[in-house]
Design a protein around this nucleic acid. Structure first.
Length: 287
DNA sequence: TTCTTTGTTCCGGA
DNA sequence: GTCCGGAACAAAGA
């Protein structure tokens, strides 16, 4: 479940290893991801040099001379790197599952720097979209996105203004990518726990201090996760094969029936369903 | 066989 | 007209 911090880590790792490399070959093993991979993708990209790799929300953008490739990892998509000469997985700082099954490799980019970039996706909910221009903000997927959480514009005024005349509960508001883009189920649950706010609270009922606290906690937990190398994925291990920081890191997500980790609270973590998504919260300290 | 997982879209009701 | 949320969808594994 890659959310903003995981994508940020992937972006940094890819940037370090393959920025400025040229694609010299490409194999598509499976066209049928969430959207069908365009028929001529190979023709468009072979011999193109990667000029820049960036992130917007949970999207990765590979820029070429005058085109770009947008990538979304869905639920289980991952990039990893192989050394071309022997197909050995390379040790990089980005997360990957050591038990990657080659049958879920869907795209294989051979680069001119001795590295192969592989896209692997078990459930095939990830996707690629190719554009013959570099006007990122004109792309439908990007155009409708709300603020990046780290933006200074994501502040009390923006928050209050957005929720005016709205009846949405706070969980769904934070999941709404047109409000703030990059959060997914895990970090929303965690941020609400940190802020002692019940996920079903109507957004408008939050007072200014609660909003300020929530904004600050969202920024804090995303930064913390990035500093830990992005670890919101249970099955993943880091490059050294150690477990991610998942267990120590999450206070509510996936902790149904466990005791609240907040000192001074003895409440129980409960699981409720909100808009068909699991939500976890402390039955005692989240009001 | 059924349930779970996520982001997105569609659609009915308010 | 707009907002909200439930249902459906994609695929695979448990």
């Amino acid at each position: 479940m890659p959310e903003l911090p995981e994508i940020e880590i992937v972006k940094r790792s890819l940037f370090k290893m393959i920025n400025k490399a040229k694609i010299i070959d490409m194999k598509i093993y499976n066209k049928n991801l969430r959207y069908k991979i365009p028929r001529h993708l190979r023709k468009y990209l072979v011999n193109e040099k990667i000029c820049k790799i960036s992130r917007r929300s949970k999207y990765l953008i590979f820029y070429f001379r005058n085109k770009m490739l947008l990538a979304h990892l869905g639920m289980t998509g991952k990039f990893f790197l192989l050394r071309s000469k022997d197909n050995k997985i390379m040790k990089t700082s980005f997360y990957y599952n050591l038990n990657i099954l080659p049958k879920h490799n869907h795209i294989d980019f051979t680069l001119d720097n001795g590295i192969k970039l592989i896209y692997n996706d078990i459930r095939k909910f990830g996707f690629f979209k190719f554009f013959n221009h570099k006007k990122l903000n004109e792309i439908g997927f990007i155009k409708k996105l709300g603020l990046e959480p780290f933006s200074s514009l994501f502040n009390l005024n923006y928050f209050k203004n957005f929720i005016k005349n709205k009846k949405k509960n706070i969980k769904n508001l934070l999941m709404d990518q047109t409000f703030i883009s990059g959060l997914g189920n895990i970090y929303v649950n965690e941020a609400l726990f940190m802020s002692k706010i019940h996920p079903l609270r109507i957004s408008k009922s939050l007072n200014e201090n609660e909003i300020l606290d929530l904004i600050s906690n969202i920024k804090k937990i995303l930064k913390f996760s990035i500093s830990k190398g992005g670890s919101s994925i249970k099955d993943f291990k880091n490059a050294e094969g150690k477990d991610g920081n998942f267990q120590q890191f999450f206070n509510v997500y996936g902790r149904e029936n466990k005791t609240c980790s907040r000192i001074s609270c003895s409440g129980k973590i409960i699981k409720i369903s909100i808009s068909n998504r699991s939500s976890f919260c402390c039955s005692k300290c989240q009001k």
